[in-house]
Amino acid sequence: MVDFLSQYLIIDIFISNFGRLMSGLRFTFTLTIVVMFFGTIFGVLLALGRSFGSKPVAWLCTAYIEIIRGTPMLAQLFILYFALPPYGIRMTAVTVAYLGFTINCAAYQAEYTRGSIESVSSDQFKSAYSLGMSRWQTIFIVVLPQAIRWAIPAWTNEFIYILKYTSLAYVIGAPDLMTQGKFIASRNYQFFRVYLIVAIIYLIIVWISTWIIDIVEEKLKIPGFG
Protein backbone atom coordinates (compact mmCIF):
# COMPACT_ATOMS: atom_id res chain seq x y z
CA MET A 1 0.00 0.00 0.00
CA VAL A 2 2.79 2.37 0.96
CA ASP A 3 4.65 1.25 -2.14
CA PHE A 4 1.64 2.11 -4.26
CA LEU A 5 1.24 5.52 -2.70
CA SER A 6 4.92 6.32 -2.95
CA GLN A 7 4.50 6.07 -6.70
CA TYR A 8 2.45 9.21 -6.47
CA LEU A 9 4.64 10.98 -3.98
CA ILE A 10 6.07 13.74 -6.04
CA ILE A 11 6.71 16.54 -3.61
CA ASP A 12 10.31 15.53 -3.00
CA ILE A 13 11.13 15.52 -6.68
CA PHE A 14 9.32 18.80 -7.12
CA ILE A 15 11.31 20.44 -4.36
CA SER A 16 14.72 19.14 -5.36
CA ASN A 17 14.24 20.19 -8.97
CA PHE A 18 12.31 23.34 -8.26
CA GLY A 19 14.76 25.62 -10.02
CA ARG A 20 14.77 23.69 -13.25
CA LEU A 21 11.04 23.23 -13.32
CA MET A 22 10.38 26.90 -12.69
CA SER A 23 12.85 27.90 -15.35
CA GLY A 24 11.12 25.62 -17.82
CA LEU A 25 7.73 26.95 -16.76
CA ARG A 26 8.85 30.54 -17.16
CA PHE A 27 10.08 29.80 -20.66
CA THR A 28 6.90 27.98 -21.63
CA PHE A 29 4.63 30.66 -20.25
CA THR A 30 6.54 33.59 -21.75
CA LEU A 31 6.71 31.78 -25.06
CA THR A 32 2.96 31.22 -25.04
CA ILE A 33 2.10 34.82 -24.17
CA VAL A 34 4.41 36.33 -26.77
CA VAL A 35 3.32 33.86 -29.44
CA MET A 36 -0.36 34.55 -28.74
CA PHE A 37 0.18 38.29 -28.86
CA PHE A 38 2.01 38.48 -32.16
CA GLY A 39 0.26 35.48 -33.60
CA THR A 40 -3.14 37.08 -33.00
CA ILE A 41 -2.19 40.44 -34.47
CA PHE A 42 -0.64 38.80 -37.49
CA GLY A 43 -3.62 36.45 -37.73
CA VAL A 44 -6.12 39.31 -37.79
CA LEU A 45 -4.10 41.01 -40.53
CA LEU A 46 -4.07 37.80 -42.53
CA ALA A 47 -7.83 37.45 -42.09
CA LEU A 48 -8.39 41.03 -43.24
CA GLY A 49 -6.12 40.44 -46.19
CA ARG A 50 -7.94 37.31 -47.14
CA SER A 51 -11.46 38.73 -46.73
CA PHE A 52 -10.98 42.28 -47.95
CA GLY A 53 -7.68 42.52 -49.74
CA SER A 54 -7.05 42.76 -53.45
CA LYS A 55 -6.87 39.51 -55.43
CA PRO A 56 -3.10 38.98 -55.17
CA VAL A 57 -3.11 39.89 -51.47
CA ALA A 58 -6.03 37.59 -50.75
CA TRP A 59 -4.33 34.79 -52.65
CA LEU A 60 -1.09 35.19 -50.71
CA CYS A 61 -2.88 35.19 -47.38
CA THR A 62 -4.88 32.12 -48.29
CA ALA A 63 -1.77 30.28 -49.47
CA TYR A 64 0.04 31.07 -46.24
CA ILE A 65 -2.88 29.94 -44.10
CA GLU A 66 -3.45 26.70 -46.01
CA ILE A 67 0.21 25.72 -46.10
CA ILE A 68 0.88 26.35 -42.44
CA ARG A 69 -2.33 24.69 -41.29
CA GLY A 70 -1.76 21.78 -43.62
CA THR A 71 1.69 20.82 -42.36
CA PRO A 72 2.65 19.39 -38.97
CA MET A 73 4.02 21.91 -36.49
CA LEU A 74 6.93 19.59 -35.79
CA ALA A 75 7.91 19.65 -39.44
CA GLN A 76 7.78 23.45 -39.40
CA LEU A 77 10.09 23.61 -36.38
CA PHE A 78 12.47 21.12 -37.95
CA ILE A 79 12.68 23.04 -41.19
CA LEU A 80 13.30 26.33 -39.45
CA TYR A 81 15.98 24.95 -37.14
CA PHE A 82 17.74 22.21 -39.12
CA ALA A 83 17.08 22.87 -42.78
CA LEU A 84 17.85 26.57 -43.08
CA PRO A 85 21.43 26.92 -41.74
CA PRO A 86 23.03 25.43 -44.87
CA TYR A 87 21.45 28.34 -46.73
CA GLY A 88 22.89 30.83 -44.34
CA ILE A 89 19.82 31.35 -42.17
CA ARG A 90 20.86 30.30 -38.70
CA MET A 91 18.74 30.88 -35.61
CA THR A 92 18.99 29.66 -32.04
CA ALA A 93 16.52 27.08 -30.84
CA VAL A 94 14.82 29.75 -28.74
CA THR A 95 14.40 32.04 -31.75
CA VAL A 96 13.04 29.19 -33.81
CA ALA A 97 10.59 28.35 -31.05
CA TYR A 98 9.27 31.92 -30.94
CA LEU A 99 9.22 32.31 -34.70
CA GLY A 100 7.86 28.88 -35.53
CA PHE A 101 5.03 28.94 -33.03
CA THR A 102 4.05 32.49 -33.97
CA ILE A 103 3.89 31.58 -37.64
CA ASN A 104 1.75 28.61 -36.78
CA CYS A 105 -0.51 30.46 -34.35
CA ALA A 106 -1.12 33.26 -36.86
CA ALA A 107 -2.44 30.81 -39.43
CA TYR A 108 -4.98 29.35 -37.02
CA GLN A 109 -6.00 32.70 -35.58
CA ALA A 110 -6.51 33.92 -39.13
CA GLU A 111 -9.03 31.20 -39.81
CA TYR A 112 -10.97 31.78 -36.59
CA THR A 113 -11.05 35.51 -37.24
CA ARG A 114 -12.08 35.07 -40.84
CA GLY A 115 -14.99 32.94 -39.74
CA SER A 116 -16.23 35.62 -37.40
CA ILE A 117 -15.60 38.45 -39.85
CA GLU A 118 -17.77 36.69 -42.37
CA SER A 119 -20.50 36.19 -39.81
CA VAL A 120 -20.86 39.95 -39.40
CA SER A 121 -23.88 40.70 -41.57
CA SER A 122 -23.70 42.83 -44.67
CA ASP A 123 -26.29 45.10 -43.12
CA GLN A 124 -23.47 46.61 -41.11
CA PHE A 125 -21.73 47.65 -44.30
CA LYS A 126 -24.96 49.10 -45.70
CA SER A 127 -25.47 51.31 -42.66
CA ALA A 128 -21.87 52.43 -42.46
CA TYR A 129 -21.64 53.28 -46.15
CA SER A 130 -24.90 55.21 -46.03
CA LEU A 131 -23.42 57.40 -43.31
CA GLY A 132 -20.52 58.18 -45.62
CA MET A 133 -17.92 55.84 -44.14
CA SER A 134 -15.26 54.39 -46.40
CA ARG A 135 -14.66 50.66 -46.81
CA TRP A 136 -11.64 50.44 -44.54
CA GLN A 137 -13.22 52.78 -41.98
CA THR A 138 -16.15 50.39 -41.83
CA ILE A 139 -13.86 47.39 -41.51
CA PHE A 140 -11.91 48.80 -38.59
CA ILE A 141 -14.64 50.72 -36.75
CA VAL A 142 -17.68 48.51 -37.31
CA VAL A 143 -16.74 45.04 -38.50
CA LEU A 144 -13.56 44.20 -36.59
CA PRO A 145 -14.82 45.17 -33.12
CA GLN A 146 -17.77 42.84 -33.63
CA ALA A 147 -15.79 40.07 -35.30
CA ILE A 148 -13.22 40.07 -32.54
CA ARG A 149 -15.86 39.59 -29.88
CA TRP A 150 -17.22 36.62 -31.80
CA ALA A 151 -13.72 35.22 -32.21
CA ILE A 152 -12.68 35.43 -28.59
CA PRO A 153 -13.88 31.94 -27.59
CA ALA A 154 -11.92 30.41 -30.46
CA TRP A 155 -8.92 32.55 -29.58
CA THR A 156 -8.91 31.37 -26.01
CA ASN A 157 -9.02 27.79 -27.22
CA GLU A 158 -5.99 28.54 -29.34
CA PHE A 159 -4.22 29.89 -26.25
CA ILE A 160 -4.69 26.59 -24.46
CA TYR A 161 -3.47 24.70 -27.54
CA ILE A 162 -0.37 26.82 -27.88
CA LEU A 163 0.39 26.44 -24.19
CA LYS A 164 0.45 22.67 -24.58
CA TYR A 165 1.98 22.52 -28.03
CA THR A 166 5.00 24.51 -26.92
CA SER A 167 6.07 21.24 -25.36
CA LEU A 168 7.18 20.26 -28.86
CA ALA A 169 10.04 22.68 -28.43
CA TYR A 170 12.00 19.92 -26.72
CA VAL A 171 12.76 18.38 -30.09
CA ILE A 172 14.95 21.26 -31.10
CA GLY A 173 16.37 21.58 -27.61
CA ALA A 174 14.64 24.78 -26.52
CA PRO A 175 14.57 24.93 -22.70
CA ASP A 176 10.83 24.67 -22.08
CA LEU A 177 9.06 22.80 -19.32
CA MET A 178 8.97 19.49 -21.19
CA THR A 179 12.69 19.66 -21.98
CA GLN A 180 13.42 20.24 -18.31
CA GLY A 181 11.20 17.34 -17.36
CA LYS A 182 13.03 15.03 -19.73
CA PHE A 183 16.33 16.24 -18.37
CA ILE A 184 15.36 15.58 -14.79
CA ALA A 185 13.92 12.17 -15.57
CA SER A 186 17.00 11.12 -17.51
CA ARG A 187 19.01 11.64 -14.38
CA ASN A 188 16.85 10.26 -11.61
CA TYR A 189 15.05 7.62 -13.68
CA GLN A 190 11.81 8.52 -11.89
CA PHE A 191 10.02 8.85 -15.19
CA PHE A 192 6.47 8.34 -14.03
CA ARG A 193 6.74 10.79 -11.18
CA VAL A 194 8.61 13.43 -13.09
CA TYR A 195 6.18 13.45 -15.99
CA LEU A 196 3.32 13.43 -13.52
CA ILE A 197 4.70 16.63 -12.01
CA VAL A 198 5.15 18.15 -15.44
CA ALA A 199 1.60 17.25 -16.44
CA ILE A 200 0.22 18.70 -13.21
CA ILE A 201 2.11 21.94 -13.73
CA TYR A 202 0.69 22.27 -17.26
CA LEU A 203 -2.76 21.55 -15.89
CA ILE A 204 -2.48 24.21 -13.20
CA ILE A 205 -1.30 26.80 -15.70
CA VAL A 206 -4.13 25.93 -18.07
CA TRP A 207 -6.65 26.29 -15.24
CA ILE A 208 -5.29 29.64 -14.14
CA SER A 209 -5.14 30.94 -17.71
CA THR A 210 -8.68 29.80 -18.45
CA TRP A 211 -9.89 31.51 -15.30
CA ILE A 212 -8.19 34.78 -16.24
CA ILE A 213 -9.46 34.63 -19.82
CA ASP A 214 -13.00 34.02 -18.61
CA ILE A 215 -12.79 37.20 -16.54
CA VAL A 216 -11.58 39.16 -19.56
CA GLU A 217 -14.37 37.72 -21.68
CA GLU A 218 -16.92 38.83 -19.11
CA LYS A 219 -15.56 42.34 -19.10
CA LEU A 220 -15.80 42.57 -22.87
CA LYS A 221 -19.32 41.21 -23.02
CA ILE A 222 -22.02 43.29 -24.65
CA PRO A 223 -25.64 42.62 -23.76
CA GLY A 224 -27.32 40.42 -26.30
CA PHE A 225 -24.13 40.00 -28.26
CA GLY A 226 -22.06 36.88 -28.65
Binding site: S121, D123, Q124, K126, S127, A128, V142, P145, Q146, R149, I222, G224, F225
Partner: peptide
Protein backbone atom coordinates in the same frame (compact mmCIF):
# COMPACT_ATOMS: atom_id res chain seq x y z
CA UNK B 1 -35.92 47.04 -43.07
CA UNK B 2 -33.15 45.39 -41.08
CA UNK B 3 -32.39 48.54 -39.02
CA UNK B 4 -28.65 47.97 -39.43
CA UNK B 5 -27.74 49.29 -36.00
CA UNK B 6 -24.15 48.71 -34.94
CA UNK B 7 -24.52 45.90 -32.40
CA UNK B 8 -21.40 46.70 -30.43
Amino acid sequence: QGFGLFHH
